[in-house]
């Protein structure tokens, strides 16, 4: 990868990737505005799903589980597409990755819901939710990135 994006660890920002390092100094308002706008859209979608599928403290948080696993699938798809496109348009990663998907998925609600299930006396639910999210998130990001990468390399041939 000429732009160093192939070695990227952090999809939000990796200061070893030259374009990531320079983007804020070059276009601060555009980059931070794209992240904020994407974050608003992602958070509203998450809030809508959580309101549509509410859960009690002792029950499995299906909405947040679905949000987090699908968001991990989509970040895998997105990063594979951007990698194949040499990084893609300058605001694609800030808007879609950092903003929309970062705002859509949530770690704090996950942690607090696991804790709430423990406090509510439902350790089995807490453990199932804790483990299912970890396994689901990792499988989803792997599947999204790997399958998209394969499809794109087949299309390029």
């Amino acid at each position: 990868m000429a732009d160093g994006a192939g070695r990227r660890v952090d999809p939000d920002v990796d200061l070893r990737v030259p374009r990531d390092r320079r983007e804020v100094a070059a276009h601060p308002a555009a980059v931070l505005g794209a992240i904020a706008a994407g974050g608003v859209l992602g958070a509203l979608a998450r809030a809508g799903l959580q309101a549509a599928f509410p859960h009690g403290p002792a029950t499995f948080a299906w909405a947040t589980f679905g949000v987090n696993v699908s968001g991990c699938l989509l970040i895998g798809v997105l990063m594979a597409v951007l990698r194949a496109a040499g990084g893609g348009p300058p605001l694609a990663r800030p808007f879609l990755g950092v903003g929309v998907l970062g705002g859509f998925t949530t770690f704090s609600t996950y942690a607090v819901d696991v804790h709430a299930a423990l406090v509510a006396g439902a350790p089995a639910t807490a453990l199932a939710y804790l483990a299912a999210t970890v396994v689901g998130a990792l499988f989803a990001v792997w599947a999204g990135d790997t399958l998209t990468g394969r499809l794109l390399s087949r299309g390029a041939r």
């Binding site: 952090d10 999809p11 989509l74 970040i75 998925t105 609600t109």
Partner: peptide, 9 residues
């Protein structure tokens, strides 16, 4: 906070 960033990393 984010799960998407964590899983990709």
């Amino acid at each position: 906070t984010t799960w998407s960033t964590l899983s990709y990393e």
